[in-house]
């Protein structure tokens, strides 16, 4: 099967998966205890008629599946309703913050990939030497240190003691201003460290395993330089398992951003989510959970495609 057909097939499988995510998101939010009316009316005592009126206005008196279908139809058009807390369109609120989280998340991901892969290769190629041992200790620390604690330490050291980073995010600066980009570095580092460590160890073990295979000796026996042997033959096979785990890291980075954004007062989706969960702001929570779910699905889709590109045996 060609790569294109594989991608098409994989895309088709994504459709029911996406529907499942919307259903789960919708159901989950509706299982949260408490009547949404109370949060809309801020727990004021109301007579049943007024309550019923509000219910009808928000469509909360419809059967649950109608509510779901309405919500799904609106969501498909990018309309997630109005926030209960701020009375703002949910889409607008999210659109304001999404770019920040995207920037931080991608930065964290890039940091992880750019350091983990070369470090993993170096550790595998020089296994059981100083390089390998140093990287092993570093990886152990990276995996063991919780990201919020690392965030606090980074603030303490770089923002407070060394004073090279601002403690609070710059206000009124655009997303791509240099101040904002510099400010994003520390939270990105805090989120990315765990993934870096994990991917590095995985890259190392995967590469050590590949280096022992016959095709490596074969490539050397052809007289190819080490650069080609490792960079072409071994790397591609070693990346296969790394790619899958890297995709799962996207989910970790998103969930990590929730806590780290609080630590850094970062104006992203994570902080928004925590705020709105406190206020039972259903429309916002639903939209955010859905966005996160979809992001994870697409990260996995991308991983599967990359996987098939790297390993021709997958493509059938």
């Amino acid at each position: 099967m060609s790569l294109r057909r594989y991608v098409l097939k994989r895309l088709l499988i994504t459709i029911p998966l996406l529907l499942g995510v919307t259903l789960a998101t919708f159901a989950m939010v509706h299982f949260i205890p408490g009547d949404p009316i109370d949060f809309i009316t801020l727990f004021t005592e109301l007579d049943p008629e007024t309550k019923q009126e509000i219910r009808a206005r928000y469509g909360l008196d419809d059967p649950i599946y109608i509510q779901y279908l309405d919500w799904l139809a609106d969501a498909a058009r990018g309309d997630f309703g109005t926030s209960i807390t701020t009375r703002q369109p949910v889409t607008k609120e999210i659109a304001e913050r999404l770019p920040f989280t995207l920037m931080m998340g991608s930065m964290a991901f890039v940091i992880a990939i750019v350091t983990a892969i070369p470090a993993g290769i170096a550790a595998a190629y020089h296994r059981n030497t100083k390089v390998d041992q140093v990287s092993r200790v570093a990886a152990l620390l990276g995996i063991a240190i919780p990201n919020f604690w690392l965030g606090l330490i980074l603030i303490l050291v770089f923002a407070s003691w060394l004073d090279v980073f601002p403690v609070l995010p710059p206000t009124g600066e655009g997303l791509l201003s240099s101040e904002m980009i510099v400010y994003t570095l520390l939270p990105a580092l805090a989120i990315g460290t765990g993934s870096t460590a994990l991917l590095m160890r995985l890259m190392r073990s995967s590469m050590v395993e590949e280096l022992d295979k016959d095709y490596v000796t074969m490539a050397r026996a052809k007289g190819l330089p080490e650069r080609t042997v490792v960079g072409k033959h071994v790397l591609r096979n070693s990346l296969i398992s790394v790619v899958t785990v890297a995709a799962i890291q996207v989910a970790f980075i998103i969930s990590g951003s929730v806590v780290v954004e609080i630590v850094f007062s970062y104006p992203g989706l994570g902080r928004l989510l925590v705020n709105r969960v406190r206020n039972h702001d259903f429309p916002v929570i639903q939209a955010l959970v859905l966005i996160i779910g979809v992001a994870v699905i697409f990260a996995n889709l991308l991983a599967d495609v990359l996987y098939a590109y790297l390993d021709p045996r997958i493509r059938y």
């Binding site: 016959d214 050397r220 026996a221 007289g223 591609r236 021709p312």
Partner: peptide, 23 residues
């Protein structure tokens, strides 16, 4: 390296593992 694969070549025992599956 200039000799290897060029003037002296090697045939491996297990072709299945000697071939790189990715290329």
């Amino acid at each position: 390296r200039r000799l290897r694969g060029n003037e002296i070549a090697m045939i491996f025992q297990d072709a299945e593992t000697a071939l790189n599956p990715a290329y």
